[in-house]
Simulated assay, not measured.
Amino acid sequence: MPRAFIIELPCLEHSAIGHAAHLVEMLRSANLVASLRLGRRAPRFGWRWVDGQGRPLPAMPHADEGAAAEGPAQAVFVSALHCPDIPSIRDIVAAHPALVRRITTAFDQGLAVCTLGSAAWFAAAGGRCQGRLVALPWYFMGGFGLDFPGIELAEGQPFVDDRPWLSASHPEALAPMAVALTRHAFGDDLAAALAAVLQPDAQRERATRAALQDRRIPATRNSVLAHAIAWLEARVEQPYDLQALAHAASTSPRTLLRHFQQELGHSPLDHLHRLRCARARVLLEITLESVPSVALACGYGDASAFRRVFLRYVGMAPAAYRERHALRAPRRRWRVDALDGRATGIDV
């Protein structure tokens, strides 16, 4: 049976349950990415909603799905509290000694303890966080620093992985927390794949749009360099022609070379190779096209030349890159069930 990583989700009357549910949705995304990449061999996250005493809460988002994974909890996530002020936070923590003991035990057992915002008070109350670093909203730092002077406050860091304590200051930092949990549970490859799904990536966005061949030069981009870059982006798969590129940018080849070197530190040809490799990364990640087909789509008629360029600019061969970053497993891992037409994963 594939290995599972179980996260316990304690909820109190004052807990921001929606944020915990948001983390669950990202764990579901991690499970989906893992299944696309590995089929039936994929590891998976499980989760258990419990109250402050550790008793199950079945009527919670995706509770049955999370409970399907068997095994002991390996992490605890405590969501932020809906409180008007810091004294209210202190009162709630004092009123729930069982949850404080549960988190203290988790630290002692080496489990990952994850907190969002004001939930850091629960982690700190057991005395196991001395000398550690915590991410907090700025408006809680003063009170928390007075209560726990031995814990270092992270300035300008919305997420801190000071394992076994993982802390997020704001809900926006739950995505890097989910990625860190995936790395801790299942390794770098699945973590990188999840990060590609959860977190914005401007380079991938540009490469994807270019791959769709739907690029136009915006009217506001009127510099020589901007026009040249836009011209290259719209013609990634076409042969390199310095004279035509300079003509499109309304300048001479010599001046264009100088602009690229001064502003970007590389030549137009280097820039084209980077654009092509960016497109190739996207195609290797989200399609099942062969490496020669990807090479052709990126302007390389010779697959061997493409492999050399990709290795130089990306740091690994195309096949190795796909093995590490592809969101879906190769075709040979999938079949269509003849009875109901659904795609199912198979081990090979």
Rank of each mutant, 00 (worst) to 15 (best):
E237P: 04
R55M: 12
G341T: 11
R55A: 15
G142R: 11
A67C: 12
Y313N: 11
A320N: 13
R128N: 09
R216G: 08
T220L: 13
G46T: 05
P58N: 08
C298W: 02
R37K: 15
Q213L: 11
L339P: 01
A68D: 08
R183S: 07
M177R: 00
S304E: 03
V100F: 14
A30P: 02
L153A: 06
H273K: 06
V336R: 13
A120I: 04
D337S: 13
W138T: 14
L339S: 11
S29Q: 09
E263P: 01
S15K: 08
E323Q: 15
R254I: 14
W165P: 01
H82A: 13
A185D: 03
A135G: 07
L242A: 11
I229L: 15
I7A: 07
G341L: 06
H266P: 06
A320D: 15
A192Q: 15
G39Q: 09
H325N: 12
Q109G: 07
H266K: 12
L32A: 14
R324G: 02
G39W: 05
E289I: 07
L242I: 10
G265I: 07
Y139R: 12
V93K: 03
R132I: 14
R163W: 12
Y321W: 13
R163Y: 14
R276G: 03
I7M: 08
A249H: 05
G150K: 11
L190I: 04
S304I: 00
A16R: 05
E25L: 01
R308Q: 03
A338M: 08
Q199K: 06
G127C: 04
A125T: 02
P268N: 11
L269T: 02
P268K: 00
M60W: 02
L257Y: 08
V50K: 06
R28P: 01
L269D: 10
G187W: 05
A228W: 03
P10L: 06
P58C: 11
V236L: 10
A319P: 03
R281Q: 13
H62K: 10
G126D: 09
A80W: 03
A112N: 01
L257K: 09
E70S: 12
L146R: 09
A303D: 05
R331S: 13
F107K: 03
S118C: 10
